[in-house]
């Protein structure tokens, strides 16, 4: 997962043609549709890479 649009695992189905209602929240707080620490870590890694400080992420 290098961008939020990349699926974290095969359970993520969001694409522009098969949109998921929870996509936006899922980027930062996900995964939402399933529970998986690995998938959550992937998102966190993306965020930590660019977050300038603790106030950077807004939900």
């Amino acid at each position: 997962m290098e961008k939020f649009i990349d699926p974290c695992c095969e359970k993520c189905t969001h694409t522009k043609d098969t949109p998921c209602k929870d996509f936006v929240e899922c980027c930062v707080e996900g995964p939402i549709c399933h529970d998986n620490d690995e998938c959550a870590k992937k998102r966190k890694a993306l965020i930590e890479k660019v977050a300038l400080d603790e106030r950077f992420v807004v939900s």
Partner: peptide, 19 residues
């Protein structure tokens, strides 16, 4: 943010208002 990154805009709470 990096203005060329949609991911960073989303991290800043972007596109939640749209939803």
């Amino acid at each position: 943010i990096d203005p060329e990154s949609i991911d960073e805009y989303i991290m800043r709470g972007g596109y939640r208002a749209l939803k």
